[in-house]
Write a protein that binds this DNA or RNA. Structure first.
Ligand SMILES: [Mn+2]
Ligand SMILES: [Mn+2]
Ligand SMILES: [Mn+2]
Ligand SMILES: [Mn+2]
Lengths: 225, 225
DNA sequence: GAATAAATTTAGCCTAGCCTAAAATCGTTT
DNA sequence: AAACGATTTTAGGCTAGGCTAAATTTATTC
């Protein structure tokens, strides 16, 4: 749709997009980018200079980068590939949801526009991936829903579990083994102090599941209702 | 299953395998390899030296290369990926048979063993791809059926059209538009002299199709019956 | 307003694969 | 046997994307 950029550039654009979402407000630091991508800060720095030259980012030396419109399109195109592929692998091929991410991470760079469209059509143009992440539309619009982390909730709060990071397979297996998946309504029934676990009851199931600190922090929810 | 080799090395192994099939008997020349892969002879030459170092080929300078056992495994592994993917794309996603090759050419290098197995299972462990090319088994055995080119046949000969090169989309579209696909029985009803077209009747259809020189040469058939 | 710690950039190096141009080798033909 | 043309290899370079180590800039703290 938009571009002719290498896999590396695509991954940088995607990482910058993701980091811009998190710490909203400002530019993405070279260090954060390097850590995210598992490369040295020096490598990220030199790549950032190239991305600026390509018109993917605006770079202010020592101050970080911001995606340009073009860069945003690159990121959203790859994100669409990634999330459609995750959904396709899970739904059509039965790949477990803790493994779809790594497969999609490489396939995303190699998916033609034609295949993208065929896959989207076959799946009925889905709007979220297996982890609850929104899939950008074919014309690269995306709605990032406002959510809060589950670990901030209190006893009595309820809502819907909508989304969880796709990059920690162990967490996903843990949740999967207990039948907890995005979309489930829940209610907080107990909470231990000092960063202890939070206890949530999902769906109409009887038992409450203890969710430890890191896990509850990774789970994003819609509150209310 | 076998290896950790780059996409480039995989494509070289595949090309050498294919060229060994053709001009049977001996080593594959640097020139043939270069032409096949669309690189300069110098590039092929230096890559050949590296392949020898990797144990993929046996290289006798100025004499050409032969695949080793390891090299054969690399080639067959990639060929299995390629052909399973072509079949998958055609069957599950409806990609037209003249376009599956180019898609598979990149996807083949990025398909995990897990995905390979899931795709094979979903398709019912097929033995041929959409062009009639045999798919190596999971343990990398392949049976290359003995076939002859259709342009060598004479009026009255009959048999089964089994295979056609997947790399010329235009030919494939031509055949596809006429409903001619591998598997069809046929009979030769006419043949023009001096490299002129050969006329074949396929299936139970009434009309005979004229098949020009290059096309008839690309179509491989089993004769008899 | 320095001194120091942290973040960032620069400098210099490496590997994979490609390229062109020049040299070397091979096979054939006189 | 020598010469010629074709094939193959070598020499030297280039780009992408990494790396480490050293400089530089920014932020913080006395
Ligand atoms: Mn990726
Ligand atoms: Mn996901
Ligand atoms: Mn390939
Ligand atoms: Mn094929």
């Amino acid at each position: 749709m938009t571009l002719e950029v290498s896999s590396a550039v695509q991954d940088y654009a995607k990482a910058i997009y993701s980091l811009e979402q998190r710490c909203d407000g400002g530019a993405v630091s070279t260090n954060a980018l390097a850590e995210r991508l598992g490369v040295s800060a020096a490598s990220a720095s030199s790549m950032v200079k190239k991305l600026d030259g390509l018109g993917i980012v605006e770079h202010v030396p020592y101050r970080g980068v911001v995606l340009t419109g073009r860069g945003m399109n690159v990121a959203l195109e790859v994100l669409r590939h990634h999330r459609l592929l995750e959904r396709f692998l899970a739904e059509e091929l039965g790949v477990p949801w803790d493994r779809v991410h790594d497969e999609a991470e490489v396939l995303e760079h190699v998916l033609s526009e034609e295949l993208e469209e065929l896959i989207a059509a076959k799946l009925g143009h889905p709007t979220i991936d297996p982890h609850g992440d929104p899939i950008p539309t074919a014309d690269l619009k995306i709605v990032e829903p406002a959510t809060v982390a589950m670990d901030g909730l209190e006893v009595g709060d309820s809502g819907r579990f909508v989304r969880v990071s796709d990059s920690d397979p162990e967490m996903l297996r843990y949740l999967g083994a207990r039948g907890i998946a995005p979309g489930e309504p829940f209610e907080i029934v107990d909470k231990q102090p000092f960063g202890g676990p939070i206890f949530a009851r999902f769906g109409d199931a009887g038992e409450a599941h203890p969710l430890g600190g890191r896990l509850a922090a990774a789970m994003r929810v819609e509150v209310g209702a």
